[in-house]
Design a protein around this nucleic acid. Structure first.
Lengths: 195, 195
DNA sequence: CACATAAGTGAACAACTGTACACATGACAC
DNA sequence: GTGTCATGTGTACAGTTGTTCACTTATGTG
């Protein structure tokens, strides 16, 4: 699995990776692959599971560091960017998988995002934010937030990992996106949703 | 180029498509490929160019049909969904390319999206909407809108092309996303952007 | 018509692919 | 120790890949 991630980190697309390539990178003979996975798709699914752990770690750190609401967005975006840098290959894999070849991997990543969004909704409820929103509207808002952040991933991953200026730009832009969404949510009225 | 799109439409990922595969689908001998393209990447770049035309057609239709502002969002989303259905393979290619293997294709698609966003900003100016926003803030807003719609693409393309109920769901959700962004933009103040 | 250029062909190559099988090695319970 | 697994190895095979070259065939212009 690390070998596959390394290949992805080197710029290869997961959909174009083969068994022999992965085992070569892992320093192991091709046949060994079958001891652990039934196919490359299977490998992908297990990577999605591990990606879930990475996302949960990120969430935990965000919860620990974002206590008061005023700098919520900036801090969260900062933590996100930091994790995306630290686990570059994992997030690359995630970005690729969203429009990837394997339907199962695609669905897995989508489901991780749904989970993330629902956790975010819980956190906002816990912080007594957006209390005027119905549950459905809050879920919708969090979905939009997660999507926006996920899209920033493609920005982040397309620039080189040590271009601090550009990274700062992405962070600033993402922060503004989220601020705008929050303002929209703040002024949202139930009636607008159901005409 | 059609052959490549057909393969993408059948579920293959562009990054995993080879010369022989493309020519086989085109009903032509492998060597013929080199008469038209230097490499698969080159093919991808030409597909991006054609994608640009598809997007422009969509834009033109939206401009022709969306005259008054009140139903602007619903109608635009409807047109978008219709075009995404009609040019499924093209939009699949677009979604794949955003996190694809070829840096050049990636940048090409990103640039098409930037162009689209700037055209959208012009249209909003022309319609005298969001006049309280600075140029930079309007651009930012349009960027966010285009991203949101682009992400809906992955939803749309992951469900089967004739599941009208789900398509309707995606359309409704996307519409709400955009409504929320518009509300946010409507209440946006310059000072929030630059602290 | 003739001629130039674009598009397609067929055979050939070495390199690589996924997968199968029988066999070797390591770790660990008894 | 012996036996049992999980893991890794080596060899083999048929199929596929990208690219080359010299060739034929279409197409359209003068």
């Amino acid at each position: 699995m690390s070998a596959a991630l390394e290949l992805v980190g080197k710029g290869r697309h997961f959909a174009s990776i083969g068994i022999r390539e992965v085992t070569r990178q892992a320093g192991v003979v091709p046949t060994s692959f079958y001891r652990h996975f039934r196919s490359v798709d299977d490998l992908g699914l297990q990577l999605v599971d591990e990606l879930g752990l990475v996302l949960r770690r990120m969430m935990r750190e965000a919860r620990a560091n974002v206590l008061q609401a005023d700098k919520l967005i900036e801090e969260s975006v900062g933590i996100f960017v930091a994790h995306a840098q630290a686990n570059r290959s994992f997030f690359l894999f995630m970005a690729q998988g969203l429009a990837g070849e394997s339907r199962a991997v695609q669905e897995g990543i989508r489901s991780e995002m749904r989970f993330f969004a629902s956790e975010l909704a819980n956190d906002l409820r816990r912080l007594r934010l957006m209390e005027h929103l119905s549950d459905a509207d809050l879920d919708m808002t969090c979905d939009l937030i997660v999507r926006t952040v996920a899209f920033s991933l493609t920005d982040l991953l397309s620039i080189s990992a040590d271009d601090d200026y550009q990274i700062g730009q992405v962070r600033k832009r993402t922060t503004r996106f989220l601020q705008m969404i929050f303002i929209g949510a703040g002024h949202w009225q139930r009636s607008q949703a159901e005409p």
